[in-house]
Design a protein around this nucleic acid. Structure first.
Lengths: 245, 245
DNA sequence: ACCTGAACACCGTTCAAGT
DNA sequence: ACCTGAACACCGTTCAAGT
């Protein structure tokens, strides 16, 4: 008998569930139900639920339109790559977070990071710095999508609009003596005026960070004892309890 | 009868579970068990499980040693603030991701973003840009902690070391003709040579992005038609199925 | 005010069996 | 090769009751 089901079909179903109701609603039983099939039918295609989530991350990364290397400056090409990643993730924003710790676990993710490393090497980064910076750049794009102000979690438009209204009203009604800047920024904190401007700015910021990361290496190499910035990070672990309310 | 239990005690227990075994092991039943109590006992202190996770995010943010505003440059103060946030999150790296979408939902989170907005206003950011940039900056610090290469998920040291060895070996044994840069960077991709250098570099990159975000606004205002970078993001949603394997 | 006990709906997963 | 059926361990949560 020819199989009516397949990995790809289940991946589509999983995306649909995540898009409509969020990742918490993405269960094996509901995926089976939407195909009129027993939960156990999925185990023919995925070893366990984690492998389903891996497949979603891989599918998202496979959707990245990876631009071919050309003769332009490395940073132009890197910016195009990050933009392509953002575009792919934005198709399934509720699932995007799955990519955060799975880039090294699939073929398309490896292709993405290999290309990023190539561009950073061309920029003159040593291997260690390139690895850290590449990871940072790709993760930052994921974060941009996951934390987009006003992003819809529920697929229902009316519910989403109501949630946003409440969020904004909550921020607006805070004590202006304590949170004056939050009150003033209630609107832009809860939804983007322009999502395109948001992503343009975000990717611009990531690229600026990458470019400047080079000068960071050089400065540290010249002044290795200038380690004032590590002070707070390295401070001793104190008891946390006294601060809790 | 005086209560033997409390919100703070349960928050401590929740952190211990997350630190030792990861967020998936953080269940109401296991929290109850570790206090020799019925699962229902927790509902006297938390309305539901989501409120427990909210309390963890709030406790993490309450631990941030928010520096008082002073007369130094805005970017020095902002850098100190981001460093303090990273230090707080690093105490419970498995729980850090809970903060990602909860900054606006607690008093300490609001204090943090209010201070960030204040510094950005002092830097000359208009309100909209300050809101987007502040959200980006704080989220990026969370991402830095969550994606730290070689971060331990399990509390068991031997298990962790074994996992890292396998990860590195997997990357090293990839086809060098397809993933030459990944193979060359297998070691730094799987663990930090120096975690302090990693956070220094990461926060340095975030700060560079913030500083440059100002010039981004000005450039856009002067050349509003230069919108080539929005092209890929705005491209039409196509069927994804053909690309999947 | 604080905690228990029993029950329910829903979850991932094992094992054995059907066609 | 592909799917079913029954069962199990574990989960969050409701409701009612105890002290």
């Amino acid at each position: 008998v020819q199989a009516r089901l397949s990995r790809d079909i289940f991946v589509e179903t999983a995306f649909a569930l995540a898009d409509d109701e969020g990742l918490e609603s993405l269960t094996i039983r509901r995926m089976a139900e939407s195909h009129g099939v027993t939960p156990m039918a999925l185990y023919r295609y995925f070893a366990d639920k984690d492998r389903i989530l891996d497949a979603l991350a891989e599918a998202l990364l496979a959707e990245v339109a990876l631009p071919e290397p050309d003769e332009r400056r490395w940073d132009e090409q890197a910016k195009e790559l990050l933009t392509a990643l953002a575009a792919a993730l934005r198709r399934h924003p509720n699932a995007a977070i799955l990519v955060l710790n799975r880039i090294l676990q699939s073929e398309p993710g490896l292709a993405l990071i290999d290309r990023t490393l190539m561009l950073l090497k061309a920029a003159g980064f040593p291997t260690d710095a390139a690895a850290e910076t590449a990871g940072y750049a790709l993760s930052s794009v994921v974060t941009l999508v996951v934390t987009e102000p006003g992003r819809a979690i529920s697929g229902d438009v009316e519910t989403h609009a109501a949630v946003l209204r409440v969020k904004k009203a909550t921020l607006s009604s805070l004590d202006p003596r304590r949170y004056s800047h939050v009150v003033a920024a209630a609107a832009p904190l809860t939804r983007c005026a322009s999502t395109e401007a948001y992503y343009d700015r975000g990717i611009h910021m990531i690229m600026s960070g990458i470019r400047d990361s080079q000068t960071f290496v050089k400065r540290r190499a010249r002044r290795p004892s200038k380690a004032a910035s590590t002070k707070a990070v390295a401070k001793p672990r104190r008891s946390r309890t006294t601060r809790l309310r």
